[in-house]
Amino acid sequence: MSDPEILEAIRNGRDHAAFVALYTHLPKVAHLVRQNSGSKDDAKDLFQDALVIFHRKVRNGDLTLTSSISTFLFAICRNLWREELRRRNRTLTNWKLEDEADEPADLTALLAREGEYSVAEKALKSLGEKCLDVLKRFYVLHEPLQAIAKTLGFAGEGAAKTRKYKCLEAARRRYKELLSAGNTIQHA
């Protein structure tokens, strides 16, 4: 798939095809990570984070690609990996300077909120399965409260609404905790 085809696929919800095509860029990232004190799994996790970020940017329409997708993904990964190494008190040792040149200029701005988003993801993951289900149905799948109540066996719309609120509050509390625990990295 070419770059425009990948973008088109993401916009049309053909996520699987797009992701499979995007994985062809993994080896380059794996190379970077493994050259810089990371494992193959680190590389995979990092790359998957980058895929999620990329997907969201495309879906939200706040991405103007000034380079190829490959360059963009690689730049994201390099940035995230630099952060990760900083967290682990390591530095990138095998850094290729020539790669910096084609880095999208607005990448820092683009990634500014990524730390918070990944903390939010972590907070949500700590919720119970049912809580997460309610929130996902409401916020991601945009199911009406009534339908959610019916599917998940709540007494009615009101009960679903209360449940949603409580789950969200629990997630928010956890989110705040995580943020303050790691406040050396996260900038609001």
Binding site: R56, Y117, S118, V119, E121, K125, L135, Y139, A171, Y175
Partner: peptide, 9 residues
């Protein structure tokens, strides 16, 4: 953030 986190999850 939480909504974005949900989307990502």
């Amino acid at each position: 953030s939480l909504r974005e986190g949900l989307e990502r999850l």
